Simulated assay, not measured.
Amino acid sequence: MDIQAFIQQSCGRWFTQRTCHQIGNLSSEAQSAQLCMEKLSLEDKAVLDLCEAANTEPTLVQCAAKISWQGQGFQVQPQETGELLLVAISNAPNQGEMLQQVGSAPFMRLNFHIDGDQRLILTGTQDQLHLEERVWFASPNLRLRISLLKQANQLYQATWYSEVRMGVLPEPAPEELPHAASTK
């Protein structure tokens, strides 16, 4: 699977359950959310603006997506909403860089690769925090994620996500369908 196929398979509406463990103060927090992930055109203004901000050539963009969410904690917490823009930049189908921007916050540049077990692995460092995230499909409608944050080589936070697709798999765009073999 390449990054374009991984993003396409991730598109749709998802129900997410998250458990976040703060290692230093021995606390945990649970939250549920609804995610909506949609593939964006490579000419989308948000994609081009992010490429410009990252001083990256737009012709290197493999695919882009927008993730929006609406979440609610299991305790008395205000409802949380947000948006995340993802732009995959690569000369190779299974590895490259991922530009990530949450709302109007500064973007983050992550490295990505898809391993032999079809897991998307993201890594990056920003403000002395090192992120490692693994995302994989247990089935077409069940996606799992684990996110680790480290500070000064010490595990700071570990988060587990299970995501269940709400509805059916998205249809691939006509240009993404394999060409039929000729029987002539």
Rank of each mutant, 00 (worst) to 15 (best):
125 T>M: 07
112 F>Y: 15
158 A>Q: 03
138 A>S: 12
124 G>N: 14
161 Y>V: 01
100 Q>H: 05
128 Q>W: 05
133 E>C: 04
115 D>V: 09
130 H>R: 03
156 Y>R: 04
162 S>P: 05
99 L>T: 08
104 S>P: 00
98 M>R: 08
121 I>E: 03
143 R>Q: 15
156 Y>Q: 11
94 N>D: 13
133 E>F: 02
111 N>T: 02
155 L>I: 12
116 G>R: 02
130 H>K: 08
139 S>W: 06
153 N>C: 11
145 R>V: 12
130 H>P: 02
102 V>R: 13
95 Q>F: 10
152 A>W: 10
157 Q>N: 08
95 Q>H: 11
121 I>D: 04
150 K>D: 05
163 E>G: 03
105 A>S: 15
134 R>D: 00
110 L>E: 03
103 G>I: 10
111 N>S: 14
125 T>E: 15
104 S>K: 11
144 L>P: 01
144 L>V: 11
150 K>G: 05
123 T>I: 07
157 Q>R: 07
147 S>N: 10
148 L>A: 13
108 M>Y: 09
129 L>V: 05
123 T>P: 00
120 L>H: 04
164 V>Q: 11
125 T>W: 02
113 H>F: 14
98 M>E: 00
163 E>L: 10
117 D>I: 00
161 Y>N: 01
104 S>N: 11
161 Y>W: 10
103 G>Q: 06
94 N>Q: 13
94 N>F: 10
98 M>W: 03
156 Y>G: 03
110 L>I: 07
155 L>F: 03
132 E>P: 01
158 A>N: 00
142 L>N: 09
109 R>N: 12
